[in-house]
Design a protein around this nucleic acid. Structure first.
Length: 510
RNA sequence: CGGGGUGUAGCGUAGCCCGGUUAUCGCGCCACGUUUGGGACGUGGAGGCCGCAGGUUCGAAUCCUGCCACCCCGACCA
């Protein structure tokens, strides 16, 4: 138990509650296991805010690594960062009807702007009834409205296009039921919003960003994803098309890890964003939006971690290597510290991030366990024996092996191993997913596989929302996506028996 | 909002059915000493509105009533 508390400490929260008692292996119910890793923020008693999350420094460092890589990829494709207000006046929010309707049920709304002393309750405050806002402010659940209202003033000519903007921000969605990392009431994310002169350019942008998400997931998170298109009923409110990346967690449930939307001219029309094209004619701009959130941290945990704690891919680990000294006296400690300094310099010269855990308050065994819990990819231990023999002990987090390495080959070995770990994590996740994509032809088979094996199910679908709904109602599995790379293949719908042109991916989802 | 469950120290808990000394145990925390190549050991110590309010009783963590919070399953969820 203590390690869980420690892990919770390192990822999350000031005061926290562990939800279930026993750590279970990955083959058992994953949700129990996941709850062990994840805790909720405990806000003031009687607080109406549920399901918020505090991200503690180590967890935040992982998010910062994700941010940095994504931000770089966005900028490489010509995007710029900007920041827009948290508050969206209700009148703006409701302008794009479908979008407003889609989010209406989960909006936090600011109605007052002042507190005052409560005359009936000395020492307490109450909302000043005279401080009611003329117009309510919606706390953004997403920023399309406020951004498109701003874009109106930024676009006049085709020369102002494309407008490629990204924002790093927090949003609030008042979900009835929350789940840490995967669906918190407030979460951090990035939302891209772009405006284009032509439809084809906007569609290309939406596809491009989805591809960038896929590449980030695979190359940095070591998490294989299926790129696809959402069905109409799963589509973003206000979008014409929603592209997505879908990942498979260790418990066989699917997780939507990122989405990219082609918005058509819906927002341009709602907010009157027109431009003069090169023939001098007025036209509405074409839009996209795309986002990923702290949900990715949940995805990372649920893809790679084992019963000993987190397993981080080297490309996202806050530090890739940790050095633990083992010593009996101050002399040895000084000696080892010098050695560690040399090693760190050498590793850093190869752009490897490394931390020397020189705490004198913890014993080596404790440090070993803690770094395993935090998923540090490689650990170097240096003790008196190593000083004599010119070696160090090098341990891998992912497969928990140890080897003795001589000092002169250390940096090369570390560099090689980091790459190997990154690749092997991806390969393992890929193998796992390959084992859990099942083609089925009949509805009986569909239900059996879902029940006994879980994972993705590849099946024919007649394309109707009615069939989709019925399957969901009966099995709780939804269509995760229509994969973009799937081959056309004629067949019969697994449910209705009607003709189908291609297979789609079904799964139970988080 | 419906069904089920839980609330005792920072965390995890025993005790509750069948009311009765100073509320149990483990982890963690503090001090000192010995230790340090896989989560150290010993000794001593600190820490409790037993979820809240009311009731029954000589006496309530325990029984009754009401409330609150949280968890699980639903509903809900681009």
């Amino acid at each position: 138990m203590s390690e869980l508390i420690e892990l919770c400490n390192s990822i999350v929260v000031p005061k926290y509650k562990i939800m279930s008692k026993n750590l279970t292996s990955r083959s058992e119910d994953y949700s129990k296991w996941y709850n062990e890793l994840v805790v909720k923020a405990d806000l003031a008693e009687n607080s109406a805010v549920r399901g918020c999350m505090v991200i503690k420094p180590y967890g935040y460092a992982i998010w910062e690594k994700m941010q940095a890589e994504l931000d770089r990829m966005f900028k490489e494709t010509g995007h710029q960062n900007a920041y827009f207000p948290l508050f969206v006046p209700k009148s703006l929010f409701e302008a794009e009807e479908k979008n407003a309707e889609g989010f209406a049920k989960e909006c936090a709304v600011v109605t007052h702007y002042r507190l005052q002393n409560d005359p009936d309750n000395p020492g307490k405050l109450r909302v000043d009834p005279n401080a009611k806002l003329e117009e309510e402010l919606v706390v953004r659940p997403t920023s399309e409205a406020i951004i498109w209202n701003t874009f109106k003033g930024w676009v006049q000519s085709y020369r102002d296009l494309p407008l490629l903007i990204n924002q790093w921000a927090n949003v609030v969605r008042w979900e009835m039921r929350t789940r840490l990392f995967l669906r918190t009431a407030e979460f951090l994310w990035q939302e891209g919003h772009t405006a284009h002169a032509t439809k084809s350019e906007a569609v290309a942008e939406a596809k491009q960003m989805n591809k960038i998400y896929a590449s980030f997931a695979e190359n940095f998170m070591a998490m294989p994803v299926i790129q696809g298109l959402k069905t109409e009923s799963e589509r973003f409110a206000g979008a014409e098309d929603t592209y997505c990346i879908e990942a498979l967690m260790q418990d066989g449930k699917a997780l939507q890890a990122g989405t990219s939307h082609f918005l058509g001219q819906n927002f341009a029309k709602a907010f009157d964003v027109k431009f003069a094209n090169n023939e001098g004619k007025q036209d509405y701009v074409w839009a996209t939006s795309w986002g990923v959130s702290t949900r990715l941290m949940g995805a990372l945990i649920m893809t790679h971690s084992d019963d000993k704690g987190l397993v981080l891919p080297p490309n996202l680990a806050p530090y890739q290597v940790v050095i633990v000294p083992i010593y009996k006296n101050d002399e040895q400690f000084t000696e080892i510290s010098k050695q560690a300094e040399t090693i760190m310099q050498s590793l850093r010269s190869q752009d490897i991030t490394v931390k020397f855990d020189n705490r004198t308050t913890q014993r080596p065994g404790h440090k070993f366990a803690q770094h395993e819990l935090q998923g540090v990819p490689l650990r170097i231990a240096i003790g008196p024996k190593d000083l004599e023999s010119g070696t160090v002990e090098l341990a891998r987090r992912d497969i928990l092996t140890k080897e003795l390495v001589t000092l002169n080959s250390l940096t090369t070995t570390v560099k090689g191993l980091l790459e190997e770990i990154q690749n092997s994590l991806f390969q393992n996740a890929l193998d796992f997913r390959a084992d859990h994509i099942t083609k089925v032809e009949t509805f009986e088979e569909f239900k059996t596989v879902l029940e006994e094996k879980a994972g993705f199910i590849s099946a024919h679908w007649d394309g109707s929302a009615e069939t989709e709904d019925k399957i969901k109602e009966i099995t709780k599995a939804s269509i995760r996506c229509i994969p973009i790379d799937s081959k056309l293949e004629s067949g019969l719908c697994v449910f209705s028996g009607k003709p189908s042109k291609q297979r789609v991916i079904f799964a139970k989802a988080y």
